[in-house]
Design a protein around this nucleic acid. Structure first.
Lengths: 362, 362
DNA sequence: CTGTTAGCGCGTTCAG
DNA sequence: CTGAACGCGCTAACAG
């Protein structure tokens, strides 16, 4: 109602309008130092009369804190990351900070660029679900720390780097799910979403290494799968793990291949949402029913798992909690508590529904 | 490898390290003005020797542009908004800007606070899926404009405010879906996700107004539903529209109520994802099958709609495109083009699958 | 308790 | 083509 599009009012203009010195205005508006009730009133009145809003940039310049944290994930449109980021931003908001989010498409180069941008913007801290799999490929993270910016990892840990990480126990979760399948009598269990390599590794070790090289969580989940197999003395069959591009389309193809084997899997463990939908489509194409013909357990509980026919047994990840916890750990670091790269592990839950049935008799 | 945790290096330190004047360093590092190749080299070398990174805050102070845009949505964890925000941030990234996102839980008060924060941070522009339903409740948006910050609306328009908005044609989309149902012979069609009022309005006008008062999209979709009914001369039955809290649990309850009527709906039009899952659960509880017993069309195509049994017919919204388009419109405004509050309408698509079957004979 | 003064790090005149 | 000086809006020590 006042100005048209001139420069926003500054604290000096408020001071003039109120007829006081700059710093008196600054003190009341900035909420620090002492100022008499009368002047205080005058300043406040003047401020909103001319529509004053503090310039947070200028404030950050002086104080050195931006009240902004940075978040780097692979893809914000992925509901998992959407949930995590929401958790982070809620916790940040509670502490008076805002959140800038950058998606990297799982490319390390974009992650490095994103980190630099956040350093430039002088964010107070960074939370990152990194595509880096070892310390060697995480120099950009150390660079942030060199600039005095605390970093905490979320969803994915990076071994060897002394960094705090908030994660779930992927290995134990996977193991639990596969054990559930084995308990139902299954011995041929497909693993959907394996290492993204063109050539199928034949040896266990190679398989795990290949998976881990791509993504920390992938390696852990595959490990858990093997743990369960080992415990029950089931021999590992490399042909039962999906290999290649991690897309729904390719999962469809790989599961189709498995189903066509002479000794096909009677159960499937899907480590990701797209792996699950791909598997479901493969079953449909093969005219096989969930549970009745092939049992199934998925990762990342989604609302729709409930309304499927039959309802799907899933491993639930606490997405929001991963985010809020990561933010809490970050703020602790921002406030000076330097910690020794702990691994903060949150619980998962196997939600049993009806997609696991007893294995068919031989 | 160099500093421990001292203050980040400034441009002056680079100048000293390179043995040149401050502004020579500033010119090469800032990429403006002329500087001899030799000195240029020296400066660059010195810069990365001491790990210099420009302070974007200081730069913004001088230039007045922050290379940051703000986004306000109801809930980032909602896959729809996740997609929209991803689209926005991709487009912004392409133009060298970053994105700070704030969730408001659909509360106007939080939206106002969020707007103020963004004004304070001097973002270059704001994109907002507003909870405001009319100009009177959107004063915070005008305030942003008063501060010279362009604003564009996404997903939801606000009538009466001369603001650019990037939306889909909700009314036409809803109408198309309902017409499809009518074409299949249905005449008793339930509308799931109606006005969130405790008391069920009996008159059409009241019903629409109640819906529109809560959310612009809700009003439009209900209008489209009525348009289709009118066209085919089907009488409106207030008992076929859900009323009350917009949650999956309540949808379950309301659809259960409809199904128990003496003249129950033979088809359901669900305007939201949670409305859809709620409806699906209600059908399951009533031991009714999708298509065979009750036809169904949903809004917001999701990957899982494909793997349901039967696959679901859905209205697809271009989430990413909504975002990228909104960002483009915003940047046009940032660069000075002032436009006259246009409505940018993107296309939706009715994806026909198998959840619509002919209505049962009477 | 209030006003004055000096920076924060960078962009941008303006002389040399 | 290079270096010195001033200002962006605010905080923070300092006198009065």
């Amino acid at each position: 109602m006042t100005s048209e599009r001139s420069a926003p009012p500054t604290i000096s203009e408020v001071a003039i309008e109120a007829g006081v010195g700059r710093s008196t205005a600054a003190r009341t508006l900035g909420g620090y130092g002492y100022v008499s009730p009368e002047l205080r009133e005058r300043v406040l009145a003047a401020a909103d009369r001319i529509g004053y809003r503090a310039n947070a940039l200028a404030r950050s310049m002086s104080t050195g804190v931006s009240h902004t944290i940075g978040v780097i994930v692979a893809d914000l449109a992925n509901p998992f990351f959407g949930g995590v980021v929401r958790g982070i931003s809620d916790a940040a908001h509670e502490r008076g900070s805002d959140t800038v989010v950058i998606s990297t498409n799982e490319h390390l180069s974009e992650e490095v660029a994103a980190t630099n941008v956040l350093i430039d913007k002088r964010v107070d801290g960074i939370i990152i679900a990194s595509a880096a799999v070892d310390a060697a490929s995480a120099t950009h993270i150390e660079q942030a720390r060199d600039h005095g910016i605390p970093v905490v990892l979320v969803d994915r840990a990076i071994p060897g780097l002394g960094l705090d990480a908030v994660v779930i126990d992927n290995r134990a979760a996977a193991r639990g799910a596969v054990e559930r399948l084995i308990a139902a009598g299954h011995r041929r269990i497909g693993f959907v979403w394996g290492p993204p390599v063109p050539e199928r590794p034949r040896r266990r070790r190679e398989m795990i290494d290949a998976a881990a090289r791509s993504l920390w969580t992938d390696g852990e989940r595959l490990q858990g799968y093997l743990d369960a197999l080992d415990d029950e003395g089931i021999v590992f069959d490399a042909d039962l793990v999906m290999v290649g591009e991690k897309t729904e389309a390719h999962a469809l193809q790989e599961v189709g291949r498995m189903l066509a084997m002479t000794d096909p899997p009677t159960a499937l463990f899907c480590t990701e949402t797209d792996a699950l939908t791909g598997s479901l489509r493969a079953l449909r194409e093969a005219r096989l029913r969930v549970a009745a013909d092939v049992s199934l357990i998925g990762f990342d509980d989604s609302s729709w798992a409930t309304v499927m026919e039959p309802p799907l047994t899933m491993i639930e990840q606490p997405m929001l909690a991963l985010g809020t916890r990561a933010a809490e750990v970050l703020f602790a670091a921002v406030e000076g508590q330097d910690s020794r790269g702990e691994l903060h592990t949150l619980d998962t839950r196997l939600i049993e529904r009806e997609s696991v049935a007893p294995a068919p008799r031989l």
